[in-house]
Design a protein around this nucleic acid. Structure first.
Lengths: 347, 347
DNA sequence: TTGAAAGCGGTACCAA
DNA sequence: TTGGTACCGCTTTCAA
């Protein structure tokens, strides 16, 4: 059976309270006594029991605040599912959640939301936000004020955030390239790239990873064109339509942002013959994208375990708060999950 | 804040002990009082707090017994990793594990191991075993004696096992077919099927799912040959070698069992030209299989989340024992995970 | 048939 | 600077 605080206290000849103070560096304990207790605890291999901790934690529940640009962005539906699953699992242990859903990535609204979370007494924060100097500052300030912050889905590396939970976009792009390499049937692949926005790092990384891998594998390809959809279905539709008209020899459409439904609509209007020789690759299987995969318009979707992102971010922060370990946390990089028609059901 | 037993007791005007007795149907409570308490608990929406439960559970730890044919079978390494991860997570809550590792699927040794687990006082069992009448009887007996049993990786449906945690082999085979359909570059795919054994249901299901899907998708294919490797690398090597010699026009090797390393050795000895026109699909990325994927010998691996199988089986049984709900459990079907060279790292 | 109380491990607070 | 104790929610045991 594992060692308890009581046993450590007895072995050290002090009370449980004193051991607790020492182990949590709360101060108010004589130096030599503290050292003695540390030594005994180490020798006995003491490790705090989570059940006890969690039960005691109920007295003063902890709140984790989320700031997500999820309004009008269906990708975050699965992320939220994961978050709520973790919340349900940890509620009995004293976890509370507060979620601020925002439309878009406007720095001002994000900063406002973050400050509100702090003002509301959140014990930790988890954010998906834009990479601007103001937001970097804002996050560093929050961390400096003693509130741990982690990033989810989109990283802000170089800030004081504890860790990042999300996709490796370069690797995801490389995976898409690997799939194309296996399935292309032309001598030279003629690629059309549709990105959401050239300002989004994740989108750019997916393109970079894609091209790097194609080149590393010596796949002969030509980038016919690259256009922005603004993550909007209407724009994606009209632009794709135009592109397909302009480039009759397209053999692959590589879509790295949202607006995929609009893009697919344009593709589905092509004559069967052209469609047959066209590979469509995209990312993230939210919304109606699954339907297009089932219909055979989209060949491959590379996903990033959105529910895991939500779930793991909650668990990571909650454990961190519970342990009071105060160390740096490791990133949690989700897998590049390949979906085709036959395995796209079920998350 | 959630409702506690104490609150239910106060509302009902009885003691906590009485509420506990009623809620666990332990008997010894007057009928009308019991009904009254049930009613109040339902009205208040009482749900037992897991932290309290788990802490109390520590007094009498609960043991889950595993019986796995994992000796000399590298597939189970990841399953065991998942099992141990769950154990580490739940140890503080009073969970203990006992694992019997067996070589092969001989019914006698499995039955012996199961009986030993029961004799050793295990509170629940999780097994991967052969589908024979004796083992079905054995499992039903154990369940009848009050010890819950679940199956992992290989199901024995129709027995009294609580649920199954593992792969849907038919769907996995269908996924392999879907991949082949996307990447084949011949007018008619000439398939060589290598199975571990025609006695293993999982292997047969993978073949059935594969063929069904190819047909449903109208992919012209011809099954050149089907051979057994006995899940052995030596046999797989020599038989594959012979098959490749006999059938010069093979354009796809579909391997549904173990022995894949031996098979790959034979493939890697082919001249480059033939290899280039050959698609190799197999299942489960354990052992040195990853190396062959990275080398480009294997094109696709369809995996079944072995670590999840281990992890979820532990969690499911532990929660079941903790809840004392005694209901039937839902199966946990793992995903068909597609791996290629670019995304095969990391589990 | 029911109530009362101890205990699981850890935390927090008061008194010394 | 320390000890003592109450409490978190639930289970179990003993006493009534």
């Amino acid at each position: 059976m594992a060692v308890t605080i009581k046993q450590v206290a007895e072995a050290a000849g002090v009370s449980r309270g004193t051991v607790d103070r020492v182990l949590h560096n709360r101060g108010g304990v004589r130096q030599e006594v503290a050292e003695h207790i540390h030594e005994i605890a180490a020798r006995l291999g003491y490790f705090p029991n989570r059940a006890g901790k969690m039960l005691a934690a109920r007295k003063q529940p902890v709140t984790i605040g989320y700031v997500l640009p999820s309004v009008g962005n269906a990708f975050f539906e699965d992320v939220k599912k994961g978050i709520h699953a973790a919340e349900a699992e940890m509620r009995d242990f004293g976890l509370r959640l507060k979620i601020a859903e925002i439309k878009g990535f406007y720095p001002d609204s994000h900063i406002k939301a973050i400050r509100e979370m702090v003002a509301d007494g959140c014990n930790a924060l988890c954010v998906t936000t834009a990479d601007t100097p103001e937001l970097r500052n804002c996050i560093d300030e929050v961390v400096d004020s003693g509130i741990p912050v982690i990033t989810i889905n989109t990283d802000l590396s170089g800030t004081k955030r504890l860790c990042y939970v999300g996709s490796d976009y370069i690797k995801a792009g490389g995976t898409a390239a690997g799939l194309l390499a296996l399935c292309h049937n032309a001598m030279c692949v003629k690629v059309l790239v549709a990105t959401g926005s050239l300002d989004v790092k994740g989108h750019n990384d997916r393109i970079a990873g894609f091209r790097d891998t194609l080149e590393k594998k010596n796949i002969p390809y030509r980038l016919l064109d690259l256009y922005e959809t603004q993550d909007d279905n209407e724009i994606a539709y009209s632009k794709t339509k135009a592109m397909l008209k302009e480039h009759e020899d397209v053999s692959c459409i590589y879509a790295v942002g949202a607006g995929v439904e609009g893009l697919c609509k344009a593709v589905s209007e092509l004559p069967t013959k052209r469609r047959k020789n066209l590979r469509v690759l995209c990312f993230d299987d939210f919304g109606t994208i699954r339907q297009y995969v089932k219909k055979g318009i989209i060949d491959f979707v590379v996903c990033q375990e959105p529910a895991q992102q939500g779930y793991q971010s909650v668990i990571k922060l909650f454990n961190y708060l519970l342990d009071g370990s105060k160390g740096k946390l490791n990133n949690y990089i989700t897998k590049a999950v390949i979906k085709i028609k036959e395995n796209i059901e079920r998350n």
